[in-house]
């Protein structure tokens, strides 16, 4: 683990430049999805609606934060040979907590997210951060790093979901913004100014998530040229 980043060894809890960088770096220069290409699977599958994306983002922030903290606390006790399995057990436990909580509190979201809650376990962001950061840093810095990466992931998820839901169904968070919902199909005053938009069904299907992320990457790299792939 020679490549594990060690931020600093000084004691005490403070919030200076380095700590702020831990939080903001994953939002732009080191974004988990558009730069590191981690955690794509769930980003594609759950972004058909803002609501699902928001639930997923919260779940990933939670898992990322606590997996980082717990791994960091145990980092000196974990033998190197079995660290993958230990990390996976920590993540799997947290994901089980998320799954059971969702099942109890928001059954509707639990139903529509189905297997993708379980797939947070193999979400490479969580695993990647444990391996690259939490195994070598104190719990406090690891918590910031986990939060930052969770947010970096969540923000992309929400952007993709915004485009897909808005253009696909003319809705945001399930509320009708554009287009004719069944009650407006009859010729009323509202139907004339709400009903002109026809939902684009392709945006709801899987391939459109790919296109939206591709355009996002394009925009991100055009705006931040140092990220351009030179190979």
């Amino acid at each position: 683990m020679a490549d594990t980043a060690v931020v600093d060894k000084k004691q005490g809890i403070q919030f200076g430049k380095k700590e702020r960088k831990l939080l903001t770096d994953p939002l732009n220069d080191n974004n988990p999805i558009t730069v590191q290409v981690l955690g794509i699977c769930s980003a594609l599958a759950v972004t058909t609606g803002m609501k699902n994306a928001a639930v997923m983002a919260v779940a990933v922030v939670f898992v990322c934060l606590f997996a980082n903290v717990f791994t960091s606390m145990l980092r000196n006790a974990i033998p190197k040979q079995v660290r993958m399995i230990v990390q996976l057990v920590i993540i799997a436990t947290l994901v089980t907590v998320v799954e059971l909580t969702l099942k109890a509190v928001a059954f509707e979201s639990y139903k529509s997210l189905s297997v993708f809650i379980g797939l947070i376990i193999t979400n490479c962001i969580v695993m990647g951060r444990l391996e690259a950061f939490a195994m070598g840093n104190r719990p406090y810095e690891s918590a910031l790093d986990g939060l930052g990466n969770g947010f970096g992931y969540g923000i992309i998820l929400l952007i993709v979901a915004f485009f897909r839901e808005f253009f696909g169904k003319g809705e945001l968070f399930g509320a009708k913004i554009l287009g004719a919902s069944p009650e407006y199909m009859i010729n009323t005053a509202e139907s004339s100014w709400l009903g002109w938009y026809q939902g684009n069904n392709l945006m709801v299907l899987f391939p459109s998530a790919m296109f939206v992320i591709a355009v996002l990457i394009w925009a991100h790299r055009a705006w931040n040229p140092k990220l351009v792939d030179v190979s």
Binding site: T34, P207, S208, I217, W218, R221, P225, V228
Partner: peptide, 21 residues
């Protein structure tokens, strides 16, 4: 340039996904 590598890979996968649909 901004589309090279990763961006193209995403776009291609989307097109392949449409084909598989």
């Amino acid at each position: 340039p901004a589309m090279r590598g990763l961006g193209m890979a995403f776009l291609l996968t989307g097109l392949m996904g449409m084909a598989f649909m």
